[in-house]
Amino acid sequence: MSFAEQQQSDLSRKDILADLCAQFPDEVSGAVSTRPGRAWAEVSKEALHRVVEFLLGCDDKAYLSTITAVDAQEEFQVLYHFWAGGTEVTLRVKLDHNNPVVPTIMDLAPGANFYEREIHDLMGIEVTGRGELKRLIVTDDWPEGNHPLRKDWKGLPGGEDDG
């Protein structure tokens, strides 16, 4: 066996997406694998906590890579990227544009702390169940209600317009 073949056979890649759909037939939708090692699925914010618990428990290497917030104009999407079962699994939670709130997953993945504070600062996503979301990125005197990564954010009120 060549080294390359050996490397490939060492990839312990479970069909994590099938496991996920079998475990949560009603909660998980839109499950798709775009290529080997990449999986995407949509979950409701109510089911998020249970699905995350399952993913982190699926093998002893599973961890939360990061959390991304996207302003999709008609809605917000929060993407939870996990390395689990030899696959980068992205859980997508769609949120009402007027009321973007997700439950915390810090009790399952303490490393989520900074990522939740980051999406709160920059995208204005509220995270419940974890106490105060202290500012992490923006300054202490940053005006309330200004979330720079939102598509409709045009700069600080009274700020310079750089054209």
Partner: peptide, 16 residues
Amino acid sequence: IDLDVRRDDPYAAYGE
């Protein structure tokens, strides 16, 4: 922790 993207999720030519 036995994690390395180059081996676990090979990109570019790392598979070889």
